[in-house]
Amino acid sequence: MPISLLEASLLGADIALFSLAGAGYLLSRSLGPGVVPDARAAFELLDRSIKRYAPELPQGYTWTEAFEHLRERGVKSDWTKMDEKLSEYEAFRYGSLAPLPRDGTDVAALAMKLRRNPIGRRTKGEDTQPG
């Protein structure tokens, strides 16, 4: 039975909508860390990523504890650099004199990396299992 014009247009609209949604999803996954305006936004992004990546971490975790946990889970990153970035951010966040670090690229890159590795998937020696 031939499809009517209405059905054909509805099907076309569906395909277009799903394509758009798919493209949006893929775009969000491929977004580089360059989109974060500063370290505060990067650390907020990282906080959300850590919650998704390591839900076993208790609510009261601190950055140092979270980094330690990620290291234990085998997440590969330049941890020396991450520790430096954290110190700079904390100096701004809790100190009274340090300016807000403008560059949040490395932190955002770690956040995106955690997002790309959902719980339960093991990639190249990195443990992504909770606990």
Binding site: F43, D47, G60, Y61, T62, W63
Partner: peptide, 9 residues
């Protein structure tokens, strides 16, 4: 208590 209360991050 320390694991429950969320510190400023």
């Amino acid at each position: 208590i320390l694991t429950k209360v969320k510190p400023p991050r």
